[in-house]
Structure formats: structure tokens, C-alpha cells
């Protein structure tokens, strides 16, 4: 039985086709989220990758901020629930999931069976989210995907405020004017995001294993800084950005069982 999960986020669209609730047979990930053409294209690509037609799908679940506007779904599920399912599927021992997406950050606590116990969401603020990294990368004229490489070469991370994206933007410009090395600035930026999210995570009882999900999980600079700040290693999967879509496909499978 094939099921399908689509995660329509604020900045990207992700799809996963699963077979029998265990095997990922097709995926897609496109820049452009809610309100763009990307969700439809992501669906097309994932089905093509899997070699499966829409008619062969037993169930479709949509998640992410655009979930309720996606009409071709049997289920609309909160992204926190889906990230929990997706992370547990990938790391069966995971108890704490830190999800940093394009416009928000969330922390999810699971019990040993993978059931959600608690969750927290960030304030309505760009600090501590992927948006913060996007803004900073834009100022530094560095592709956001290369931030981690710069971070790895840093000698002394700069101090960047973690309280406000707008103020932090001014700080970065000031630091550039003062001749601070680009690598040190990027490390400071990653540390700033990590600091903000670590504060959120500490409001929940952090139980290992801990993993990250969402687009920012790809950034080793943020991952390492976050690991240091919360005092736990952070598991990483190349599929971290797909956890929401994986969880949605699993949800559809469970419902159809």
C-alpha cells in the first residue's frame, strides 16, 4: 500500500511516497512553499521518482502551514505531530525533536513508544528560525547552504544578539565595518540561532536521544552549536528536512490500516 505525505512549509514544499508505512520510495523537495506553484510540482516529482500514480495512493496527508489549503488530501495534520512521527520512524530511540523551520522553531517531546508527550512553539519572531539565517546570508552575500562551511573555518565566533533579527542585522553590518572575519561572523550567527532555540528547548525536559528536523538541521554550524548549548549530542539524518512529509505519509498509512 502506498501512502503520500506532503509538507507545505513557509519556504519549501516536501513530499514523500511510502510503501507499507516502512519504505520511502519517492521524495521531492522544492524551494517555494505556501501560495506558490511548488507544492503541485513537488507532488508531481515525488510521484515520478516513486514510479507511482495518484490513483495508486491509498491515502494522502498534508502537513505544514499550507496544509489546510491543500485540497487533494484525505487528512490535514499538524506539523508537530508529523515531525514526531517522522523523527521516530528515522530514529526509533529519539525522545526530543528540535525542529527549526523557515519561520518558526518547535520542540517536541516523545515517550519511549514515540507518542507525543509535550510540545513548545517559538514566539512570533524570526530570531531562532531559518528566516534569521536567510536574512544574514543575504547581507553577507553567501548562499545559505554554505553557511556551515564558513562556520567550520571560524577561529573566534563573533557575538551576535539572539533577541531580534532586525537588531542582529545591524550588528552584523557593524561587525563587517569593523573588519570581523566572515567566518567568525557566520559562526556567531549560527550560535545566535542555536542560543535562541536552546532556550526554547530547555523549557521542555530534554531527554536524549535528541534529533533535529527541518531545513536548518542541514546546517552543521547550528547543529553543533545547539548540541553544545543543550549538552546533548544531536542525531542528524540527511532526510531531516523530510521528517514532516514522512510523518504525514505514516499518518495516512496508520489511518488506512
Amino acid at each position: 500500500m502506498y501512502t503520500f505525505g506532503i509538507d507545505i512549509g513557509s519556504t519549501t514544499s516536501k513530499c514523500v511516497v511510502m510503501k507499507d508505512g516502512t519504505q520511502i520510495v519517492g521524495t521531492s523537495l522544492l524551494v517555494g512553499g505556501i501560495g506558490t506553484k511548488s507544492p503541485a510540482e513537488a507532488v508531481r516529482q515525488a510521484l515520478e521518482n516513486a514510479g507511482v500514480t495518484r490513483e495508486e495512493l491509498a491515502g494522502v496527508a498534508a502537513t505544514g502551514y499550507g496544509r489546510n489549503r491543500y485540497e487533494d488530501a484525505d487528512y490535514h495534520v499538524s506539523e508537530l505531530s508529523c515531525h514526531g512521527l517522522g523523527a521516530h520512524h528515522t530514529f526509533p530511540g529519539v525522545r526530543t525533536i528540535i525542529d527549526i523551520g523557515g519561520q518558526d522553531a518547535k520542540v517536541i517531546s516523545l515517550d519511549s513508544e514515540g507518542r507525543m508527550q509535550n510540545f513548545l512553539m517559538n514566539d512570533k519572531c524570526a530570531a531562532g528560525t531559518g528566516r534569521f539565517l536567510d536574512v544574514m546570508a543575504n547581507i553577507l552575500v553567501i548562499p545559505v547552504g554554505e553557511l556551515a562551511d564558513y562556520c567550520a573555518r571560524a577561529k573566534e565566533p563573533a557575538q551576535i544578539s539572539s533577541t531580534c533579527t532586525v537588531f542582529a542585522e545591524s550588528e552584523v553590518i557593524s561587525q563587517l565595518a569593523n573588519g570581523v572575519e566572515m567566518e567568525d561572523l557566520v559562526a556567531g550567527i549560527c550560535s545566535s540561532v542555536a542560543g535562541r532555540v536552546a532556550s526554547l528547548a530547555k523549557r521542555i525536559n530534554i531527554v536524549p536521544e535528541v534529533c533535529m528536523s527541518g531545513g536548518v538541521a542541514q546546517n552543521a554550524g547550528v547543529r553543533n552549536a545547539l548540541s553544545e548549548k543543550i549538552g546533548h549530542p544531536i542525531l542528524f539524518s540527511p532526510n531531516a528536512q523530510l521528517f514532516g512529509a514522512i510523518g504525514a505519509a505514516l499518518y495516512a498509512w496508520e489511518k488506512k490500516q
Partner: peptide, 25 residues
């Protein structure tokens, strides 16, 4: 579960996500 509200809220999508997750929980 905590949801922050005020008299100027125009977008309740974050609240919706929290409530839907609370329901699942």
C-alpha cells in the same frame, strides 16, 4: 498547552497548529 494571545491578533495559524497538535496529544 500555552497559546499566547492579544487584542491585535489577525493571524491564528500558529494557534491553529498548537490546538491541532494539542488535540493529537
Amino acid at each position: 498547552v500555552l497559546i499566547e494571545i492579544d487584542r491585535q491578533m489577525v493571524n491564528y495559524e500558529q494557534a491553529r497548529t498548537a490546538i491541532e497538535t494539542f488535540k493529537d496529544l
